[in-house]
């Protein structure tokens, strides 16, 4: 869906409806971040308790294992670091 702030009125969708899923992924909210989670794979026990706590759905899981935080969207709240019992995530000024 190619709609942006330069689109002309007749290029917008009728009724301002969006008939495509999850178009918000175009918005890289990672720009908001002031602190960045640094993930230490060695320390991680893959308990995955950090994953559902991420308000920005930014900890991808593949085949039951968490991967690196998706910094395109992570806003740097630090909840993941706080819930990790193994010290595998630290928040750093980057």
């Amino acid at each position: 869906m190619n709609i942006n702030e330069q689109s002309k009125w007749y290029e917008l969708t009728t009724g301002a409806e969006i008939f495509e899923p999850a178009t918000s992924r175009e918005v890289k909210t990672g720009e908001w971040r002031t602190r960045t989670p640094v993930f230490d794979k060695e320390k991680c026990k893959q308990c995955l308790l950090c994953v559902p706590f991420c308000p920005d759905v930014s900890i991808p899981v593949e085949r039951g294992e968490r991967l690196e935080t998706n910094l395109d969207y992570c806003k740097g709240c630090g909840i993941c670091a706080k819930v990790c019992s193994f010290g595998a995530i630290t928040m750093e000024e980057l």
Partner: peptide, 28 residues
């Protein structure tokens, strides 16, 4: 053409229309 229950085409209705869009929507 578009509706919430349409097969294989999710539809989102009723957005927050910020200033760069609101007036174009009204013009429509």
């Amino acid at each position: 053409e578009h509706y919430l229950l349409k097969k294989d085409e999710p539809l989102a209705v009723g957005p927050y229309g910020i200033s760069p869009y609101y007036m174009e929507i009204k013009k429509g």
